Computed example of a mutant assay.
Amino acid sequence: MLFSAAVDEYLEDKTKRLRGNTMEGYISALRRHVLPAFAGREVEEITHDEVQEWVDSIPTYGAAGKAYKTLRQVYRWTVRKHQMRIWDVTQGIELPEAPVVRRPTLSAAEERETLCGIVGQEWEAVVLAQAALGLRRCEAAGLDWSDVDWRTGWVHVQRGAHWVAGRLVEYATKTRLSDRWLKLPRWALARLRALRGRLRSGRLRGALAPHQIAGRFRRLCHRLGLPWVPMTCLRHSWATIALEGGAAIEDVSVALGHSTVDTCIRHYLQSFRSVARRASDAYDGEMLMAA
């Protein structure tokens, strides 16, 4: 069976089951990396060494990982679907070593300056909510005014807005743990109350798509000389600021909607110094008490 035919069957099946934004990622990896290498090959003839050499030829870690995982999904789905009695050549493939990524973040003072600088913009509510709650960009763009308990400041995060194939679509949150309640700081709640006015429902983003908000946010910050990070990194800034302020890693992980604490440590903890300091102080305190 030609691998290109296997891809067609796979996409036809998965389009019925997976979200549009997920499918876009798979299709991109297939077109850019997988199909150019394997389209004309028989599935049964692809070898382990060939797959390893192909992975090694992709220059960046992120692209190599995405391409390999996409190939593996199509390959294993095809083997199961057609009950092929062949060895899985995608087993034991070694990916390039992951680079150390230091995502840019804002300090508390920088974030305050930036939030003050965007006051009055039509997209202010989305950026403010993302910064104050540590949301994913899609989650902030998916918030509705009715998701907020205006008396207590609790916010129900239950959907995300995505730009897929040239149109705006909304899906439920990424995972079960991503559907969560978060509490707005008092200053953020007060500002959102002012922005809401008489509205009782409707999306905070208005008619704008997430990428449009991100672009306008970037351009305004650059024009005014405000501290800036991509909207995606406002989430990283929230986690870093919370951890530097003494929050437990476990609590930050839950607030971010992660399945495991390890995810928070790997992706959002920019510096272990504050965490190590608290551990050291706790140890020192116990030793002093024992003296």
Rank of each mutant, 00 (worst) to 15 (best):
Q83R: 13
L95G: 07
E286L: 15
R266N: 13
L195K: 01
M1D: 06
E94R: 11
L35G: 12
R31S: 14
V119P: 00
G285T: 06
R277Y: 05
C264D: 05
S237M: 06
R31L: 10
A67M: 05
C116D: 12
G225D: 04
R219G: 07
P36V: 06
V155R: 01
A141Y: 00
G142H: 04
Y26V: 08
L30R: 01
R193Q: 09
S280Y: 12
R223W: 14
G202E: 12
M289I: 09
P99F: 10
V275Y: 09
L115M: 14
S146T: 02
I27V: 12
A98G: 12
L204Q: 02
Y268P: 00
L2P: 15
G92Y: 14
R277C: 05
H82Q: 11
Q158S: 05
L35I: 08
D147T: 02
A131V: 06
V261M: 13
S253I: 07
L226K: 05
V119A: 13
L133C: 02
P227R: 03
L115N: 02
A276K: 00
R223P: 06
L189E: 00
L135K: 00
A291T: 13
L30Y: 02
E113Q: 14
P104E: 14
T105W: 10
R167T: 14
G153V: 03
T90Y: 04
E12Q: 13
Q270G: 09
K174Q: 04
E286V: 15
Q158C: 06
S4L: 09
G245D: 12
H222S: 07
H211C: 08
T152G: 09
H222G: 04
R186P: 00
W77L: 08
L133E: 01
E94P: 01
L18H: 04
H82M: 11
L184K: 01
L195C: 01
L128P: 00
V34K: 12
L269Q: 14
T175A: 05
E97F: 03
L177E: 09
A6G: 03
H236C: 03
T22C: 07
L226W: 07
R137N: 03
W150F: 15
M287T: 10
R167N: 12
T232Q: 15
Q91P: 00
A209E: 10
M23L: 15
T114G: 04
V169Y: 12
C138D: 07
G40L: 07
S274C: 09
R219S: 15
R180Q: 12
R191V: 06
A39L: 06
M1G: 11
M84A: 09
E286M: 15
E111Y: 06
R151V: 13
G202R: 11
A207D: 15
W145D: 03
Y283N: 07
G202A: 11
E12W: 10
R76S: 10
W87P: 01
F217W: 10
M289Y: 08
R193G: 08
R159G: 06
A247H: 04
V148R: 01
R191L: 04
